[in-house]
Design a binder for these strands. Structure first.
Lengths: 220, 220
DNA sequence: AGCTTAACGGCACTGAGTGCCGCTTGTACA
DNA sequence: TGTACAAGCGGCACTCAGTGCCGTTAAGCT
């Protein structure tokens, strides 16, 4: 029998996938509150203790790897060349999150539905989004250190980028994550980013955003 | 002995205050994770079961009444005269939250420290802020129904108002909630709101905002 | 004073999350 | 190819948050 998965790297990835699949299935059919961690573990064929070795909590059972996403964004923000325009930088960072969701559109759509129907999951998602916002704001604050209103600009740009990103992502997911729906949400994304305070001499932001959405389109 | 409080309306208010005071004190001296609900209840002189009759969860022990705040905002937004400019409307709604925090500046400052040091409380706060954002967005969407880009404008204005409000509030609380510190944060507040997309014919937003901060100043 | 209502305390229970420990498996190395 | 070692696993026991239930007790009204 193959009840001895997870001891190799491929096995661990397989166990993780099966846990996520079991969680999504049970949450949708039975409901989030009515599903216990024991249920998920049993459905995935592992022990309850093992579940908590893959996910820190029940709420994280359907989540992409949050820490990985934060680390990717942080790497983009910290390794950027100092002369790169800020607009280009935040768009590149946003792209990494787009890619993460576009890796498995089906799962992303299902996750979207659950996080909008289950209060506990919705609150968890709010906290996660705020982690992204804080990371952007922190790195931008370092970047703007010494400039007039640097902190304020960092806070506003950080909030605006995350808001724009979520608006576009949610719109796309709410429509079922279909590739032919991207055009409409590209427009929305662009409009929100247009509200960002312009820096003199900064190249057009929308150019970079279109590249990001195009990249999402390819994956979806 | 007065171990029979809480049976009258004044008694209930007193019990609530004592529970909040006990929670704040224990969270600061012993730490959030190291404090159990039994500890809080015992310190306030009530049974553990009674704690959960006053607060839905341990995380809410130090919170102002979230539902009350949401209801106040919602009333302002839904009972507004249709001809009132949107800028004026959202500022009036924001004022009600300002008032709630200004009622007890000392408690607000203490709460601010805790929500920034304890991850669990910080995540809870993120979710709460998002509830405000969603409420604003929902009511603004109804208000903008039928107008071009109504949904998009509702989403952006809702997010911007909440962000501006939090920025000013956090700045004031981080400085210790002192009345003579308000001027600096009034400036920050005004600058953020200036980023809002202007509606043609709308009177100056900053005028209303200054009134809001002045009101905060009076209470603090 | 008697009656109704509502808050209280306590008990028992479910379920999330954690520490510990002995077992099993894949791997590295002889 | 056999063996030692590291790492993952299952299970057990425990703490604590949160809930349902119920008997008790105080507050307010007649």
């Amino acid at each position: 029998m193959n009840s001895r998965r997870g001891r190799s790297p491929e096995g661990r990835a397989e166990v993780r996938r099966e846990l996520v699949a079991a969680a999504v299935r049970l949450f949708r059919t039975r409901g989030y509150e009515e599903t216990t961690v024991d249920d998920i573990a049993a459905a995935a064929g592992v022990g309850r203790r093992t579940f908590f070795r893959y996910f820190p909590s029940k709420e994280d059972a359907i989540s992409p790897d949050h820490e990985v996403a934060l680390a990717r964004i942080d790497e983009v923000l910290t390794t950027a060349h100092p002369t790169e325009p800020t607009a280009s930088l935040v768009v590149r960072a946003g792209e990494t999150v787009f890619d993460l969701y576009a890796e498995d559109p089906g799962l992303s759509v299902e996750r979207f539905r659950l996080t909008h129907e289950v209060p506990a999951l919705r609150d968890r998602e709010s906290a996660r989004v705020d982690h992204y916002r804080r990371l952007f704001t922190r790195r931008l604050r370092e970047r703007f250190a010494g400039e007039p209103d640097g902190d304020l600009r960092a806070a506003v740009i950080g909030a605006a980028v995350v808001a724009a990103h979520n608006l576009a992502l949610r719109g796309w997911l709410a429509g079922g994550g279909r590739p032919d729906d991207v055009e409409h949400h590209r427009e929305r994304f662009r409009k929100v980013i247009d509200l960002l305070p312009r820096e003199p001499g900064t190249p057009d932001v929308t150019e970079r955003l279109e590249a990001a959405v195009a990249r999402l389109e390819r994956h979806a």
